[in-house]
């Protein structure tokens, strides 16, 4: 994974987290799959992993966009939260797979492992992330186009994607 090129075009990666087996928890993966279709040039990584396993996926880019289900209890299911890295510590909520993302990013920074300079979190308010095999709620699924719109805005200004992550 190389450095930014001379034009300082930021490398962007969309890291889609979630679990296809767990009701609304699949929304991050749905967005990741849709983003692959819509933005073929974008580096998109989909994973059901959590914790330190995410380390490999957060390094080597300038701007990391993380998309995951989130439960704050402060908005209706399907609400799209757009947060920065500083919000990560203050999120009074459960981001099922992103829990621990803060430490993973700190670890990457602490060891100078090419941590992203910019992190954007797209959290989709979920209703149920613990029922195995349940279908995703309508309201949550409806957030997918809104999330794609947000991703488009984030990458709009002629930026190139990073090389694909090693997986």
């Amino acid at each position: 994974m190389g450095r930014s090129n001379a034009l300082e075009v930021p490398r962007i990666r969309l890291l889609a987290l979630g679990n296809d087996l767990l009701a609304d928890d699949r929304v991050g993966l749905e967005i990741g799959r849709a983003a692959r279709q819509r933005f073929p040039e974008l580096d998109v990584v989909l994973t059901e992993e959590a914790g330190f396993a995410l380390l490999d996926y957060v390094v080597g880019v300038d701007h990391l966009i993380v998309v995951d289900a989130i439960q704050t209890g402060r908005a209706e299911p399907g609400h799209l939260w757009i947060l920065g890295a500083d919000d990560l510590a203050n999120v009074r909520a459960v981001m099922p797979h992103g829990a621990g993302l803060k430490e993973v990013l700190e670890l990457a920074q602490g060891l100078q492992l090419e941590a992203p300079a910019r992190v954007t979190l797209l959290g989709i308010e979920a209703a149920d992330c613990t029922t195995i095999g349940a279908t995703i709620s309508e309201a949550v699924l409806e957030a997918v186009p809104r999330a794609l719109q947000a991703i488009e805005e984030l990458i709009r200004n002629g930026v190139r994607s990073s090389e694909p992550a090693d997986r």
Binding site: L22, R92, H97, A99, G100, L101, V104, T130
Partner: peptide, 11 residues
């Protein structure tokens, strides 16, 4: 599944 938090981040 919902709480694979690391120290410091787990409410």
């Amino acid at each position: 599944c919902a709480t694979h938090s690391l120290p410091g981040s787990m409410p």
